[in-house]
Simulated scan of single mutants.
Amino acid sequence: MTITPKTIQIFLPSGEPHGIRIAEITTRIVQVIEVPRSLLNSFLGMEQSSQVGVYFLIGEDTEDGDRLVYVGQTGDLRARLTAHNQKKDFWERALVLISKTNSLTQTHALFLEWHSLQQIRIAGRFADENGNSGSRPHTPAPLEADCLEVFETSNILITSLGYPLFEAVIKARQTEDNDDDCFYLSDKNQTIKAKGVYTSEGFVVLADSLAVLETAKSISDSYKQSRQRLVASGIIKPNGEGQLHFDKDYLFGSPSGAAAAVLGRSANGWTEWKDAKGRTLNQMKRVNVGIEE
């Protein structure tokens, strides 16, 4: 799929940047409305709340480090969100997907709910609160095409608002050892080897990377606690050979956090991570930026 430039408009009905936000691509019919739970009553007074819609209830991080989401659809947003406000405790914000032309039908909404949940589970960034996702709803081919176009737009808007529900932490895994996008890390005894990619969001350690089993006494408390959460959540697991194994790609906020998780000690990730030619992440992504070879 070709990626093209886009202009997104975000409207603040109250003028407050942390209040209700309405995002849209002005040439398309889809809107996504971000509603803080504390302002739900304000949204319920807006005309958009009377439409058929798909909604995403977003919760805070769990002890395992996952963010929570619940996906639903309804022909009566006011009644459904009011019920969720009374009965569901975990969520802090709602993202509501509607049509500016009020043209979404219940059939659209059912397919979008199902498809969104599948994509959330594939991406693996958020833990969903839905339980069984049910079977794929029957949707005529022309209507399904409309739904997928709506989903594409909603993905752009929801991600732009800061909720990458459908985006994998790394879109295209790089697996060749000589690939310039990949960086590697080993301990001094060469008993473990980890592989990662530096992205616009942080540093991703790729699945099947290995980490040391024990932490050093000198590791900082924050890195130690972060590593303990990864083990407790099953993201990294003992492999029975005296090492820890990354079961999936995992995004760290910084290269140093990623290096500490792998090495079990405090580390400068900018100098520890190196490409296949031995050049450090610092050389490749900071020192040499803007310098032509």
Rank of each mutant, 00 (worst) to 15 (best):
Met1Val: 10
Thr7Gly: 09
Ile8Ala: 11
Ile10Ala: 11
Gly15Phe: 06
Pro17Ala: 10
Gly19Leu: 07
Ala23Asp: 06
Thr26Ser: 14
Thr27Asn: 10
Arg28Gln: 13
Phe43Ile: 08
Leu44Ser: 07
Glu47Lys: 15
Ser50Met: 10
Tyr55Gly: 04
Ile58His: 09
Asp61His: 15
Glu63Lys: 13
Asp64Gly: 14
Val69Phe: 01
Val71Phe: 04
His84Trp: 06
Arg93Val: 15
Ile98Thr: 15
Ser99Phe: 01
Lys100Asn: 14
Ser103Arg: 09
His108Pro: 08
Glu113Ser: 10
Ser116Gln: 02
Leu117Phe: 00
Gln118Ala: 05
Gln119Lys: 14
Arg121Lys: 14
Ile122Met: 10
Arg125Ile: 07
Phe126His: 12
Asn130Ser: 04
Asn130Lys: 00
Asn130His: 03
Ser135Ala: 13
Ala141Ser: 11
Pro142Glu: 05
Glu149Leu: 11
Val150Met: 10
Val150Trp: 04
Leu157His: 09
Gly162Ile: 04
Glu167Trp: 01
Ala168Gln: 15
Val169Pro: 13
Lys171Leu: 15
Ala172Trp: 01
Arg173Ala: 09
Arg173Met: 03
Cys182Lys: 13
Gln190Trp: 04
Gln190Arg: 14
Val197Ile: 15
Gly202Pro: 06
Val212Glu: 00
Val212Phe: 01
Thr215Ala: 10
Ser222Asp: 13
Gly240Ser: 04
Gly242Ala: 08
Gly242Pro: 07
Asp247Thr: 15
Asp249Tyr: 02
Phe252Thr: 05
Gly253Thr: 10
Ala258Tyr: 04
Ala259Asp: 03
Ala259Cys: 02
Val262Tyr: 00
Gly264Met: 02
Ala267Asp: 11
Glu272Gly: 00
Gly278Asn: 07
Arg279Met: 08
Lys285Ile: 03
Glu292Lys: 13
